[in-house]
């Protein structure tokens, strides 16, 4: 199932990520993990050598490490705490992540860093050297305006600044990800886009793309709302056990373009 292929015309979301390192930050529950996993898969589809680092030191369940075996089967290594500590809710920064960030782009491919929510989760980034150069690192702030404490412009701009202060990084791009899972409507996406656009206007940080569940991303109603903005179609991969699980597609080298 080539779910992460965007078949529509226009600029592709991935083309906007020029730097070898992509960091996902934002409110708790804004969708960083699913976007990180989907980005990693999409980059792999393009034939890129990509490694995902699970730096979520905040939430105990539904972390990107849950997909580590499936991702590994696609040739995407996932950096996680070793041994039984992978199951713990301890603030463990895997030391290899520092090496990954330092060497990314130097012929060793790309890195996607999935970071925990809020300023609390972003704090770990301050311990990693080499993230401050925008040519080396894209820092993406994910916005879901249907999440608690992320509903108003004031709330999202405050969190953005707190994340920047805690991580000692500047956010370089915004990702609109307002949704209600299976109950997402064009109105919900539209509201969220408006919020992200106002955040972009206030901060001067560009809104790069809009993430939309893959099964909705082709809908003309959704497309009408999103307009020219690139769309990143998302397949939910970190799901509860009752979900009918999305199987990861096996990438064929050079076959898929996002």
């Amino acid at each position: 199932m080539p779910a992460t292929i965007d078949t529509t015309e226009g600029t592709c979301a991935l083309d906007l990520l020029k730097a070898p390192v992509t960091v996902l930050v934002g409110h708790f529950g804004s969708g960083k993990t699913e976007i990180a996993v989907n980005l990693a898969v999409a980059l792999k589809h393009r034939g890129e050598n990509v490694t995902l680092a699970d730096l979520d030191l905040v939430k105990p369940y539904f972390r990107s490490r849950l997909a580590r075996h499936e991702l590994a089967s696609l040739g995407i290594p996932v950096m996680v705490p070793e041994g039984d500590r992978v199951y713990a809710d301890l603030p463990i920064l895997v030391p290899q992540v520092k090496g990954l960030v330092a060497t990314a782009g130097n012929g060793v491919g790309r890195a996607v860093l999935d970071v925990g929510g809020d300023d609390l989760g972003a704090r770990v980034l301050g311990a990693i050297a080499g993230l401050t150069d925008p040519a080396h690192t894209d820092v993406l702030f994910v916005v879901n305006g249907r999440r608690p404490f992320a509903e108003t412009l004031e709330e999202v701009v405050t969190m953005l600044r707190e994340v920047e202060a805690a991580s000692r990084l500047r956010v370089t791009g915004l990702v609109a990800n307002t949704h209600l899972m299976d109950e997402t409507t064009p109105e919900v996406v539209g509201e969220g886009l408006a919020l992200a656009q106002r955040l972009a206007g206030l901060t001067g940080i560009p809104l790069l793309f809009c993430a939309v569940l893959e099964k909705l991303s082709g809908s003309p109603d959704i497309r009408a709302v999103v307009g020219e903005l690139p769309v990143l179609p998302l397949v939910r991969r970190i799901t509860p056990p009752f979900a009918v699980k999305a199987r990861l597609p096996v990438p064929q080298k050079g076959a898929a373009v996002v």
């Binding site: 529950g29 249907r146 999440r147 608690p148």
Partner: peptide, 15 residues
């Protein structure tokens, strides 16, 4: 009130 996307724990707190 518009629907929100909430974790079970958050939703219990708001309830």
């Amino acid at each position: 009130m518009a629907k929100k996307l909430m974790k079970g724990c958050e939703a219990i707190g708001e309830a």
